[in-house]
Design a protein around this nucleic acid. Sequence first.
DNA 1: GAGATCATGTAACTGGTTACATGATTCT
DNA 2: AGAATCATGTAACCAGTTACATGATCTC
Lengths: 185, 185
Amino acid sequence: MDAKTLCLGALILGDASGYDIRRLYEDGSFACFHAISYGSIYPALKALHAEGLIATAASSHTDRPHKKVYTITDAGRRALAERLKTPPAADSYRSDSLYILSFAHLLPRDMRRALLDAYRAEQLAMLEAIDDCGQTEDEHAFGRQFVRGLGRTVYAAVVKYIDENRHMIEAPDMTDAVITQEQDA
Amino acid sequence: MDAKTLCLGALILGDASGYDIRRLYEDGSFACFHAISYGSIYPALKALHAEGLIATAASSHTDRPHKKVYTITDAGRRALAERLKTPPAADSYRSDSLYILSFAHLLPRDMRRALLDAYRAEQLAMLEAIDDCGQTEDEHAFGRQFVRGLGRTVYAAVVKYIDENRHMIEAPDMTDAVITQEQDA
DNA sequence: GAGATCATGTAACTGGTTACATGATTCT
DNA sequence: AGAATCATGTAACCAGTTACATGATCTC
């Protein structure tokens, strides 16, 4: 998903500034699936504006003069709907934590335990973030609700798995032995 | 995780060529967490070789002359162990499918259903890939086993969730109404 | 009035991907 | 023989991130 589509997707939920969009993808409902930073938001907004897919909202002038609030236009709505119809790229999941944990035997026991705790905390935080963030019950939100439920399910499953299987990681230490002996493979 | 670490991680599992490493991250046990392409593998291998962290394996000369098989050196093993101790970056999960699905109401019913089916199939394939791929039961593999179990749990949870909640996405169609009327927000 | 946070914007960097070039080997 | 796959490698490209510059507004 390119920055422009991500911005349109944010704006269809309601008027917003670049800053608002950032926050929406930072800790809002989209946080789990896509990220975007200022460096791509502002150029994207400029481009979308030039293409007539978004317009500066009325509130932009009244509120704070230097805050630029945008609204999606009808053309923008159509463009987004069109863009959503293109076949999605495959999911990508990147996790340094799990990569490191898969080499748990190369780390001292207390370090792998700390890593696992941190990972668990992170996942739990995501779970709570999903429960906290905007429970807007509008009639068109069934997609959002489905996805949120999916997220909740996944994070809950991860936390549960960790709690039930942490003994695997907390196995007795054999780090030193490994580094010098693992000559097989 | 940079390409060099990813290559070291692959080589600690056993000797391999650039091509082998690619496949390991393509459909092997690492596939779920990290990806890497030829364009980064070959330069990384060259650099690692120059640094003495990997060496050309004996089999490289005997087998097929133009195939370069590498082994990790002791220095490489130490470098990897060290690299794994640096604090991991936060996980990132990117999903076009879920992003699109969160705007399900902007798509015609049959299209969202198709999208969901495709997504389910993809997740199921990942689940099966985990079960298939190398069940090497070596004593040091507890980290790998933990991570694999986690992956299995997650993918299974996703498939189950989809099966139990697909009715949300298969709700009656109101696409046309939405595109022109959703003026709120 | 100091510090936090809101807010916009740009330029340089970065690292990985894509596409291409090339050729050996295996399979049918 | 021809196709598929194995196999290495490079160069151009690209999209987004990081870091920086700047300043308004709110809060204590």
